[in-house]
Amino acid sequence: MPYTLPSVTDVLAGLTNRFGSLETSLNRGQTRVVVPEPLSFDVLAWLKNQGFDLLIDVTCVDYLEYKAAKHRYGLVYLLASTATNQRLTVRVFVDDPDPTVKSVVSLWEAANWLEREVWDLFGIRFTSHPDLRRLVMPDEFTAHPLRKDYPLQGRGERHNFPVITRDHS
């Protein structure tokens, strides 16, 4: 990659001052911060004030079958700054039986649908989300299909419809 992202070391230093030492890592120019779940909202709010005004994405990874994974679900917040072009990845790890994170909709309106999607596909509950409903799957669907214990072909939901023949129509 000929282009390297702008450094975020000053932000990380401020973050350590404010919240104590957090686990950080660097991979190919991308900086990641692992934040404990109770602190997640405060850290993200602080980062927004530091200039990370654009929430690129909220997503989740299910580490059920991942080697040497300590937690089941890892949330990913991708932040970017429109002024300085810095990028920062914030990771929050949660576990069964009731994976819950505080919603960031009050910080970024963009998180509304992204969090609904994570709830739909992974079953992570976002507290104080204004409208936490399923986004892409039908409302009567019960599973969370992107979890690793859900099979690719599904559990037969896709065949469960009435058949219309020429005689019916």
């Binding site: 939901e157 896709r158 419809f161 023949t165």
Partner: peptide, 15 residues
């Protein structure tokens, strides 16, 4: 798209 969400052929459900 042999996945959980996609109907495997509409001829299963309409003529």
């Amino acid at each position: 798209f042999d996945t959980y969400a996609v109907v495997q052929g509409i001829d299963r459900f309409i003529p």
